[in-house]
Write a protein that binds this DNA or RNA. Structure first.
Lengths: 108, 108
DNA sequence: GACATAGTTGCAGAGTTACGCAATAATATA
DNA sequence: TATATTATTGCGTAACTCTGCAACTATGTC
């Protein structure tokens, strides 16, 4: 069913449609981090980070590995990073376009 | 501000976090289509398609061009298609993983 | 101007998501 | 076993999203 595919794909997008979850993805870009380390770098509550991590895990964006008292999170598929990078490029090109427009308006 | 970037990026993801909007993006993959043509291919109400198109346009994912009574929509940046394709690859790899797992469980 | 066609907008309801707070689970150590 | 640390879960509230329906706007034709 084609509709089913679109729905599943939208779930992945939905997972990445939150600034904190994107920040988590970027924090994991260069390798594994524990939940505690991620919490520290985001500067929000443990509970909140934990919930976002659960969403990311449910969608298969991250995978986990327990080591004693710590749980290590990592990006499960590097293509996710690539997709994020592309979207950021789109964003930056949009911002550049807008900037150009503003400059043009100013000189007229 | 870095947080602002994550927020903007999440807006783009949010725009793509809906099965119908993804279907619209895929319908526009091979070029321009009018709102009516998109409505036909999706098989939902005109009003609903129009609202999804408005969301896509507000986020800069699509751009428009009026020609008489018709409004032509197109993807504004081909990188959006690339990003979608990558996410679909991620999805397909996930599904393949799951399939493998099921096969393993069956043979045991 | 009257009418048809193409598309958009406003609104209300049903449903979903995000976040803080408190409680709980899992592991390690004394 | 008691305690500390790390992380997750449940719950309530506020904010947001999706959709259908009806009303509206814009363009073209008679």
């Amino acid at each position: 069913m084609k509709n089913e595919l679109f729905k599943l794909q939208s779930e992945i997008c939905k997972t990445m449609a939150n600034p904190k979850r994107l920040e988590i993805i970027y924090a994991l870009k260069s390798g594994e981090r524990t939940a505690g380390e991620i919490t520290e770098s985001l500067g929000v509550s443990k509970a909140n980070v934990s919930q976002h991590l659960a969403v990311l895990k449910a969608c298969g964006v991250v995978s986990t590995r327990r080591e004693g008292v710590n749980i290590h999170y990592k990006i499960s598929n590097p293509k996710i990073i690539e997709a994020c990078a592309l979207m950021r490029e789109v964003l930056i090109e949009q911002l550049e376009e807008r900037e150009k427009l503003i400059k043009t308006l100013k000189t007229v």
